[in-house]
Design a binder for these strands. Structure first.
Lengths: 344, 344
DNA sequence: GTGAAAGCGCTAACAA
DNA sequence: TTGTTAGCGCTTTCAC
């Protein structure tokens, strides 16, 4: 292993000059700096991170804790975070908590001492995990807690957009198939849908769930949706939408003919389906990037100065083949496609 | 931050006793050990990993380098590795090299000093990356290099199984849509297919590619496959199969009616498709687990004693709806479904 | 602008 | 069985 001593000897300087030349180049005379960097490159010197963490307190790395790496949602966030961390010269350690609150806290506690901060995605045990940080910087993704910085999607706007779209097609009764009971984003989506329904005035909302956020959850929800009399449905995520479509077909009905379906997340399955899925897209990579930026900006600062600022990412409605006007019924109102009049 | 000193004071012992009680409990008297562990728990002591890495040389953690975390293939490996590492009380740091050979080497070099070994998945620059390890333990996944331990799928057996299946259905001309040019597994698959074709005697193989290992690659390959006169096709992975099916449909043809399709990997899209995809499955989580076990077994040992052993994982053919007998033609041989006779 | 020296928290000889 | 002590490789005062 090449150490500062080897570089110092090769460059004919002291180890402190080596350290300085590499970490604060402007405080070393140009010729000296060049000799040092040349020697370092030649010898293939790589600073021992453990040593510099121990001594300097800074790790030059951050941690990312996600509930499930196999979930494309979190994989996308991880990709974005990784890319940005690299751009900033930071290391990124990814840990998968396997959806387990205890493991999450464990992961945070283990990661905290050797990183400059933690990005905590969709936490399953926020309070305990934040406590385990002992005051070290943290950014929450897809979750909000008072006084903590966070990066979240604008679920309210997304839901409004979905409902406007369905309303414009002529739907007046829309179901929501909810996700896991304790999901923060599920709560936000419900709140957003209710607000949107009130705002639009003539759209009735049927809330269902909780359901598992997988294909199986969609299977389970399908019959409830059909029985509810809704002509359109918004699902917690795209996988639920997939299951829903499958089961609706088994019942001999058609999507979007008998039921329009809007997913969430724009997972890549969304466009592979037949029909491709209308869905709400958030740029998850930019969520990862924003979280890393937030952390990097706080690095060095001690207090929670601008700590509680929330980055809110836009949500875009991607219209594909799974949404269409409802089949005409006896009650059909010829005004449906017209510009809405004042609340009637 | 709670240090060994704090615990030592609280337990009324010296710092070395604390260290010993925590890392080699059997070498400390039971009552002392209990006092120490109690004090440690009470104070919420967490050993500073940076310090112990620096001093002991052991990191209690391993690194996993993958080309793309957003690829479910690698995500599954990561999950398996993570779970096993946890069972063994090891940390696992996941780094995404973004399919870039330079970044891969960089990641390995950065990870190596602070881990006890590296799991290198589908390397894009094996030689340089292994060199960057400076002799530290490494396990290759989905790649083989002489003298290095590895975990690979039995592509040969998988390809034989696929071809046997297609042959049993009556196919006599089978295309292979290859993946990236420099992919190790693509090479293994081609070799396996050729061997299988020779062995079966009456199956003709049409090799195509290289193609991108994504849906777009399948789009690009579809017309070539149709023009080749093959009645069945094996693709590099499931995404390519998806693209292939899409394009075949655009051409007004049917899967499996006009073309049978076998994917590889059993990514979760495979069963969502219509028709669900016949595919070759490897248990990737167990690949991750095996890699970690391999590394853990070598930990402590210096030499490359049993180092070059390769763990070969079984490949299973999962038959779903995308494979069926070919449409009868004028040349159809009534013996097609019979037990194969000697090479004719 | 550069060097000498003091540790960061921990482990592992070596002593007792 | 337990304590004392010497560093691991690095950063960072503090002199010069």
């Amino acid at each position: 292993m090449v150490t500062v001593h080897d570089v110092a000897r090769a460059a004919g300087v002291s180890i402190s000059t080596v350290s300085r030349a590499l970490t604060m180049p402007e405080r070393v005379a140009a010729p000296t700096r060049d000799r040092v960097t040349a020697a370092a490159r030649e010898l293939g010197y790589r600073p021992n991170r453990a040593a510099s963490v121990l001594r300097a307190g800074r790790a030059g790395a951050i941690g990312l804790v996600v509930p499930d790496l196999a979930n494309p949602y979190f994989a996308a966030i991880a990709k974005g975070a990784q890319a940005r961390a690299r751009e900033r010269g930071l290391g990124l350690f990814v840990v998968d908590s396997d959806e387990d609150p205890d493991l999450e806290t464990e992961a945070v506690a283990g990661l905290a001492p050797q990183t400059d901060g933690i990005v905590l995605c969709s936490p399953r045990a926020v309070e305990r995990s934040v406590e385990a940080l002992e005051g070290r910087p943290v950014v929450l993704v897809n979750h909000e807690v008072d006084g903590l910085p966070s990066v979240v999607a604008d679920h309210g706007a997304g839901m409004l957009r979905a409902l406007e779209h369905l309303r414009a097609l002529g739907h007046r009764r829309v179901a929501y198939v909810g996700g896991p009971e304790r999901s923060w984003s599920d709560g936000r989506r419900r709140t957003g849908l209710r607000a949107a329904a009130v705002r639009l005035g003539d759209v009735e909302l049927v809330e269902l769930g909780p359901h598992r956020p997988q294909v199986a959850g969609g299977h389970a929800a399908a019959d409830l949706v059909l029985a509810s009399g809704a002509t359109a449905v918004v699902t917690f995520n795209d996988l639920v939408a997939v299951g829903l479509v499958e089961r609706v077909r088994v019942r001999g009905l058609d999507v979007p003919g008998d039921l329009s379906v809007v997913g969430c997340d724009d997972a890549y399955v969304a466009e592979l389906l037949a029909p491709p899925l209308t869905t709400l897209r958030t740029d998850l990579r930019s969520a990862g990037r924003a979280a890393v930026d937030h952390l990097a900006a706080r690095a060095g600062r001690s207090g929670h100065d601008l700590g509680d600022a929330a980055v809110v990412l836009p949500v875009e409605l991607v219209v594909r083949g799974s949404t269409a006007p409802p089949r005409p019924t006896l009650h059909d109102d010829p005004d449906d496609d017209a510009v809405p009049t004042e609340d009637t």
